[in-house]
């Protein structure tokens, strides 16, 4: 059982992120990818969150501003 509890978190959280990307669409995919990239490189949470947030906001802004959106 202890092995289960130690193996489960990574899998549960990957599934959580995948489901969030499915629900949030392109902005979430780009934001999560950006966060993961920055976190992997810098190991700084605040930087990863800031870059992910900025990337997702940029994509969402472009999509909202583009003709045919809404």
């Amino acid at each position: 059982m202890a092995r289960f509890f130690q193996l489960a978190p990574g899998n549960l959280f990957v599934a959580f992120v995948a489901a969030a990307c499915l629900e949030g669409g392109l902005a979430s995919i780009v934001g999560c990818t950006a966060s993961l990239t920055v976190m992997t490189v810098t190991r700084k949470e605040w930087a990863a969150l800031a870059v992910g947030f900025a990337a997702a906001a940029l994509v969402a802004g472009v999509r909202l501003a583009s003709p045919g959106s809404q």
Binding site: P9, G10, F13, V14, F16, V17, A20, C21, G24, A27, S28, G31, C32, S35, L36, M39, T40, R43, E45, A48, L49, G52, F53, A54, A56, A57, L58, A60, G61, L64
Partner: peptide, 26 residues
Amino acid sequence: PDGPLSVAAALLPAAFIVTLLPTQWR
């Protein structure tokens, strides 16, 4: 509520988890 900043903020719970994933990498 539907602006780009709100859309991006809605991603943050997933982004939190993304930043913690490296600790689970085996």
